[in-house]
């Protein structure tokens, strides 16, 4: 029943999912960093920064991901010739798609984190300012650590969504799971089985993520 799988070697089934995993990990790290910066901007006392953060989030999260990913390839690479230092087409698509995922997912990370910041009592920041910590110290040492702990659950949602969103990278030819699935569906008759295989593959990736982060969220919860 699964014989046909062995006919696919570029990428193989596992190879394709490995690309999915890489896309997810790099994008998750990048969006966590960018999202945190954006959240810091959105709560900063500098109006220009707040404005930038607000505009960024409201523009980027309202654009379909497919448009963003396709734009990185057709826009950034083909028109502006910005290929992110890649010398072959495959690597270029891989990097550009990560850039797109980071830009897109960061908006959601930012908003999750900002709601977390709002759960930290105002007195925490006041006490931190009162002992002489600077704005960035207050944020880094007191507010964000507590905010992160309270939004592990929502961030798990963002991460799971990101994992599944990486399938959009197939649109610009990144050879990840959805790219392989499309190829198989075109050539094979066992459409249902193929659908089941890839659905299962994604559940295998996301289910443990959700369970682990759920456990972590309980463990790290700040007691008040």
């Amino acid at each position: 029943m699964f014989d046909f799988l062995s006919e696919y070697d570029d990428p193989t089934l596992l190879g394709a999912f490995w690309v999915t995993i890489q896309l997810t990990l790099f994008s998750a790290l990048g969006s966590l960093v960018l999202g945190t910066l954006l959240a810091a901007m959105r709560v900063s006392p500098v109006p220009l920064m707040r404005g930038f953060g607000t505009v960024y989030v409201n523009v980027v999260r309202n654009i379909p991901l497919t448009v963003i990913i396709v734009f990185t390839s057709l826009g950034l690479a083909d028109i502006f010739l910005w290929t992110m230092g890649a010398d072959d087409v495959k690597l270029q698509a891989f990097r550009l798609s990560i850039l797109g995922f980071v830009a897109y997912t960061a908006a959601f990370v930012c908003e999750a984190l900002r709601s977390g910041i709002n759960t930290v009592p105002v007195g925490q920041a006041e006490a931190a300012r009162a002992i002489g910590l600077s704005f960035s110290q207050v944020l880094r040492l007191i507010v964000l650590p507590q905010a992160f702990r309270s939004v592990i659950g929502p961030l798990a949602n963002v991460l799971i969504a990101l994992t599944k969103n990486t399938t959009v990278a197939a649109a610009i030819g990144v050879t990840e799971a959805a790219y392989l699935m499309k190829g198989m569906i075109e050539k094979e008759a066992q459409t249902l089985l193929i659908g089941a295989i890839f659905a299962f593959g994604f559940v295998v990736l996301t289910l443990p993520t959700g369970l682990f982060l759920g456990w972590l969220s309980k463990r790290l919860a700040v007691k008040r």
């Binding site: 009592p121 007195g123 925490q124 006041e126 006490a127 009162a130 007191i142 507590q146 008040r224």
Partner: peptide, 13 residues
């Protein structure tokens, strides 16, 4: 300038 608050405000984490 040391400050002590009504609601303590110890860093919870």
């Amino acid at each position: 300038v040391g400050m002590v608050f009504q609601s303590f405000n110890l860093f919870a984490h």
